[in-house]
Amino acid sequence: MHVPDGFFTVPVSVSAAAVAVAGVTVCLRGARKELDDRTAPMAGLVAAFVFAVQMLNFPVAVGTSGHLLGGALAAILVGPYTGVLCIAVVLLVQALFFADGGLTALGVNIGLLGIVTVLVGYGVFRLVTRFAPRSRAAIGIGSFTAALISVPVSALVFTLLYAVGGTSSIEIGTVATAMVGVHTLIGIGEGLITMVAVSTVLAVRPDLVYGARALARPLLLRRADGSPIPADAERAEPRRRTRPVLIGGVVITLLLAGVVGFYASSSPDGLERVAADTGFDTQAKPHDLADSPLGDYGVKGVENERISVGLAGVIGVTITLLAGGGVAWAARRRTEHRRRAGRSAADA
């Protein structure tokens, strides 16, 4: 999804560059809070890592392959601000050294692959882990959900930009269908890889996972003979101001899913009509899920096609969020139950 030079019109490229510069500036400020001496090379490593896993193409459907975008992964490992910087650096290096993604499209690419994926990914991650702040399972599930949602959302924003300033005249419905369809599949792969990668790091070096900082326990003090020194008081856990990020991420996700879906269907028969024009459709087979309530990205029984598709997007995102949140909540219940059981056993 690295956009090359000439794909978008000059005004879109320039506005996207302005947004990217503003975003990166904000992140440079924010990153100072996230980075200390020990985590600075982490950012470099995460950048190198995202870069490397973007080389791992994995098959998504017949004849199509996709690669990780890595935004959610970066945000969970090093924090959202540093995460954006990491992706921005990856894209800069790719454009400069590897000619992957155009230099004049750098703003678009940083916006789509960096800012959008990190914002959405981290927002979703916090939302999910909020319900189970002290378990590894919750972090795994949060990672999966975050990555899964971040990819198609990024594809939707791409479609939105395309609607505003694409240099070709293909109907937006076609682009939306193709982009979102393929990227939902990529999102599943991205979700799995992010989940397993975060869980692996969490198991071996939990101190390296930014998103798992809430798992830290308070300190104990001991005398030379090993007897414990009573602590003054249990230190209050610092409450992080996650609500703005959280709400922002969710609102943006839902808005995009709805609005872009709405616009996407402005040519309701996008791909189908073009396919019919060119005779492509004789090869196309109806999808097995086409009859399900959300099949073909529309809600049955809703007359206005545009609203229907927009609604489908919102519903899809909400279901994913609820599913992720629900599993995390269940996991939390279980750990709490176990903790309580352990405590009563110790009392007895």
């Binding site: 990166v24 600075a40 950012a43 470099g44 950048a47 190198a48 870069f51 921005a88 650096v89 800069l92």
Partner: peptide
């Protein structure tokens, strides 16, 4: 920005 140069330097070394 220096921070981005630093991240990129580390990135190349790790790559």
């Amino acid at each position: 920005p220096q921070l981005m140069v630093q991240i990129a330097m580390f990135m190349l070394r790790y790559a």
